[in-house]
């Protein structure tokens, strides 16, 4: 083992660690084709800016949101059911209610600021989105590497499972998983663990695409000289997979991860909208839309339309970024 360590060192440096590699490719990215195609695609630039704004708002929600919607003490019924600042309507008791600039997008029946609600909701949506994508990536990459590198029986078992799962829509798989896991948990903890269960359900429902892509690329990489060289010097297969194969199959994985993020955000919103997602105490965008929908017939359209708009804008921007990334990384289209 000591022998192989000394030989292994230069190879590791030559191929660099995963993070160094990402940093390096980022520098190359800035003066390469990809950045050129980015800056020359106005829609992509807009999508990027919108995505960054959403991420920053979500990350610093407690400081950036105009009101803290999670603090019940700040809610005043005087502020309830206000329309967006530019409009007004006649309330059921005959009073003319005007929107106030204090509450840009109006308030809900408890006097919560809709805009702040959206910002906090976006935080929950993005946490679940990122969490489930990371989980799906972890499962998918691991199984894909094993499947592609080892091949044979292992490969066909993993891919058969993937085939079967793929023939059911992801949303159905996520729903079933969510229901199944939830029913195993003791009732007292169902509320507290809901977010984790949700991340687990969405993550597991989306691993197949990662696994298939990684498997394909791994099978290509496996036959290349550098992998064979690593094998000849006696590196452990797991080490070869992680240090040598993995960095070279990350490109397509990043594309899928981006598109999957949009998908995960929509799936989370859908599940929360269906009432099986996050509990109402930690509303995500989907929960806000579901709660707001109940007031649609009272004329309070802003309670559901603005969260819906935020969801669509966020998902569309991430989707556009993913689409662009896919085209930019595809040498055939350049």
């Amino acid at each position: 083992m000591a022998d192989s360590k000394t030989i292994e060192k230069p190879i590791v440096e030559e191929h660099m660690g995963l993070f160094a590699r990402i940093g390096d490719s980022f520098r190359r990215f800035l003066d390469g084709d990809i950045f050129y195609s980015f800056i020359h695609s106005p829609i992509t630039v807009i999508a990027f800016v919108v995505t960054v704004i959403c991420f920053v708002l979500a990350a610093f929600a407690p400081w950036l949101a105009p009101h803290n919607t999670n603090d019940i003490a700040t809610l005043l019924l005087d502020n309830a059911e206000l329309p967006p600042f530019w409009s007004s309507y006649t309330a059921s008791w005959g009073e003319e209610l005007h929107g106030r600039t204090e509450f840009l997008l109006g308030t809900d029946p408890d006097g919560r600021d809709v805009l702040s609600g959206i910002i906090f909701g976006m935080q929950v949506s993005l946490i679940v989105g990122f969490g489930s994508v990371i989980l799906a990536m972890a499962i998918g990459i691991t199984l894909g590497l094993i499947s592609g590198y080892i091949g044979g029986k292992t490969d066909s078992v993993i891919m058969r499972i993937a085939d079967i799962q793929l023939s059911f829509p992801a949303i159905l798989v996520a729903l079933l998983l969510f229901g199944g896991i939830k029913s195993v948990l003791p009732p007292a903890e169902r509320q507290d663990l809901a977010i984790w269960v949700l991340i687990l359900a969405i993550g597991v429902s989306n691993w197949v695409q990662f696994a298939r892509t990684v498997r394909g690329s791994t099978m290509v990489e496996k036959s290349k000289e550098y992998v064979q060289a690593a094998r000849v010097i006696g590196l452990h297969p797991i080490l070869i997979m992680i240090r040598h194969v993995l960095p070279n199959v990350m490109g397509p994985v990043l594309v899928i991860a981006t598109i999957n993020l949009a998908l995960a955000i929509i799936t989370e919103a859908t599940l929360s909208f269906l009432g099986v997602g996050v509990p109402p105490t930690e509303p995500s965008l989907g929960t806000l839309i579901r709660v707001g929908q109940q007031y649609l017939f009272s004329g309070f359209w802003w309670m559901t339309i603005f969260p819906a708009l935020a969801l669509v804008v966020l998902a569309l921007s991430v989707n556009l970024l993913g689409d662009w990334l896919r085209d930019a990384l595809n040498p055939k289209l350049r």
Partner: peptide, 27 residues
């Protein structure tokens, strides 16, 4: 755009327009 819109958002929009505003269809 239609593909990017989640199903339930489309449904809510339809309800808003055709049931709440125009009152043509049951929601």
């Amino acid at each position: 755009i239609g593909v990017s819109l989640p199903t339930f958002v489309i449904g809510i929009m339809l309800i808003l327009v055709f049931s709440v505003w125009l009152n043509w269809l049951p929601s």
